Computed example of a mutant assay.
Amino acid sequence: MRNISDVIEQYLKQIIEGNESALIEVKRSELASQFECVPSQINYVIRTRFTEEKGYVVESKRGGGGYIRIIKVELDNHLAVYDQLLSLVGSSMSQHAAESMIERLEEEEAVTSREAKLMKSVIDREVLAVPLPSRDQFRARMMMAMLKTLKYKMSIM
C-alpha cells in the first residue's frame, strides 16, 4: 500500500496533467481536509515532490485567501531540459537532488531507463565514499559532466 505522500503527489500530478495550462492552484487546508491529514503533510509533499529538479515551479500566497500554485515547466526539446538542469547544478549537490534530476531526464525521455540507472549508480553515496562536503562537490561535478555529455551528444545528432 502506498503512503499518504504518494497518494497526494499522484492526485496533484493527475490534476496538472488534466489541465491545459499545466498549472494548478490549491488550498493547503482544503487538500488536508480531503486527505484527512495535517497541512504540514501537504507542505512536505509539495516541498519534496514538486521541485525545480523535477520540472516544477511552486508559488504560494499565505493568509486567508492563500493558495499554492504548482506549474509544470514544459520545455520544447531535450536540449532545453539539459540547459535548465545544467543551470541548477551548483558547486555542491545532494544525492536526492541529483536523483530528482535523473528521474526528470527519464520522464522527459532524454535518457533511457538503463542510462538513468547507470547515472544513479555513479552518484550514490556508497560509491562516492568520501566525507561531506567533498562527496556533494564530486557529485555536482559528475552531474555537470554527464549533462554536458548528453547535451553534446544531442546537439551533434
Rank of each mutant, 00 (worst) to 15 (best):
V7H: 05
N77K: 01
Q137I: 14
A97P: 04
S113H: 07
R114W: 06
L23G: 03
I16H: 11
Q10R: 14
G90L: 00
K120L: 13
I46L: 08
L86E: 15
R135I: 01
R47M: 03
I156P: 06
T51Y: 04
V38T: 12
E108C: 08
S60H: 04
Q10K: 14
Y11W: 08
G65Q: 10
M93G: 06
Q14F: 03
S40G: 05
I71P: 02
R104G: 09
F50K: 02
L85F: 00
V45D: 14
E99T: 02
S155W: 00
C37H: 00
D136F: 00
G65S: 15
K120E: 15
I71A: 08
V57A: 07
I16Q: 13
E106F: 00
F35I: 10
T149A: 15
A129Q: 09
I15C: 05
I15N: 06
A110M: 02
L118Y: 09
K61G: 12
E126S: 10
V38A: 15
E59K: 03
Y82G: 08
E99Q: 06
Q34S: 11
I15L: 12
L132R: 09
Y56N: 12
I70S: 11
I4K: 14
D76F: 00
P133S: 03
Q41K: 12
I70T: 07
E20R: 03
E106T: 02
S121N: 14
T48Y: 01
E126G: 12
I123V: 15
A22S: 15
E9V: 03
L128Y: 06
V38Y: 06
R114N: 11
I71Y: 10
S121M: 14
K27D: 15
S60V: 00
M143K: 04
S21T: 06
F35Y: 10
F138Q: 15
P131D: 11
I70D: 12
G65H: 08
S21I: 00
E126Y: 01
A116T: 01
I15Q: 13
I102V: 13
I24R: 07
